[in-house]
Design a protein around this nucleic acid. Structure first.
Length: 155
DNA sequence: GCCAACGTTGGC
DNA sequence: GCCAACGTTGGC
């Protein structure tokens, strides 16, 4: 069992969107970064814990952890890479050799918003991947210790 | 909207 | 395989 933090722009897909999806579950489409893809392909396991993070919000205080979710499928090809009408279209990907994969993510629960400022203020989270200078990865591993600190902060 | 950090691309 | 140019991310 592993733990992850997955970023999503709430204008694209918020924790509420996930809660209202059919089966409260969505394919995590649109990842176009190899490191993030490799985490999904090589390390994610069914049932892994996910911190659902709202990024790029209009108001800085809206940025942070907004809920909990779970990995709900193995990695499989992202259909949007084959769709010329999609913003995630990749001309170099083929059905025979897909370049981009994703997992499905299932809603667990909404939490209070644990803001980025609050995360930064917590000394026990100082080495969190998310908080490292220049970190931009949309999917980052979370250690069991970090996970339990965050759960306790969420109350 | 700015800009620093980072990843990707492509010419050589 | 190097590396400069370019595009993207994402907090501020």
């Amino acid at each position: 069992m592993n733990y992850w933090l997955m970023k999503s722009e709430p204008s694209e897909c918020s924790i509420d969107d996930l809660a209202q999806a059919p089966g409260q579950q969505l394919p995590w489409v649109g990842v176009r970064n190899y490191q993030a893809r490799n985490f999904m392909r090589d390390q994610m396991q069914l049932g892994d814990g996910v911190l659902f993070y709202h990024s790029s919000c209009p108001k800085p205080e809206q940025i942070g952890i907004a809920g909990l979710a779970r990995v709900a499928s193995p990695a499989y090809p992202d259909a949007t890479q084959f769709d010329p009408a999609s913003p995630y279209f990749d001309a170099k990907a083929t059905v025979e050799s897909p370049r981009w994969l994703h997992v499905d993510v299932r809603f667990e629960r909404k939490t209070r918003l644990l803001s980025l400022a609050e995360l930064r203020a917590e000394p026990r989270l100082a080495s969190m991947r998310l908080l490292q200078p220049g970190s931009r990865l949309s999917i980052t591993p979370v250690t069991p210790d970090e996970w339990s600190v965050i759960l306790s902060l969420l109350g």
